[in-house]
Amino acid sequence: MTSRLLFVALLIPAIGVAALASAGRDGIVSALSAQAKQDNSKFTSFSAEAGKKFWFTAHVGGKSDTPSCVTCHTKDARTMGQTRAGKAIDPMAVSANPNRFTDPEKVAKWFGRNCNTVLGRECTAEEKGNVITYLMSQ
């Protein structure tokens, strides 16, 4: 009886946190979607397939040490990545790390830095949304 109560007591906040995280992610994605429409009137919706292609592509224009997202984040987004300095990076896949893409400031900071490092330019809203959609599907 007590354990069941405890389970429910723990479950409610867990669901709450998951819902909050999901709401945070939805907010970020819809903001990116609005921006993508503004940038490109033909934009309809984000594509996990395009996000996956972008994630694995060896880009040009950035630093030669880091041509691609998978250079540091590895080819399996559900596993830990590693920075060039050897520090561990938590998984990027939402299934493995439910807190991913829930903090708009953090998302803006890392896309800002990493797009510049890997591509030598800012990423478009469409590119960011595609990547997030791909990582939400992983």
Binding site: K63, D65, T66, R84, K109, G112, R113, N114, N116, T117
Partner: peptide
């Protein structure tokens, strides 16, 4: 910080 040992490490 924009070019921090070959990476963009910009902060607010």
């Amino acid at each position: 910080l924009g070019d921090h040992f070959g990476e963009d490490a910009s902060l607010s």
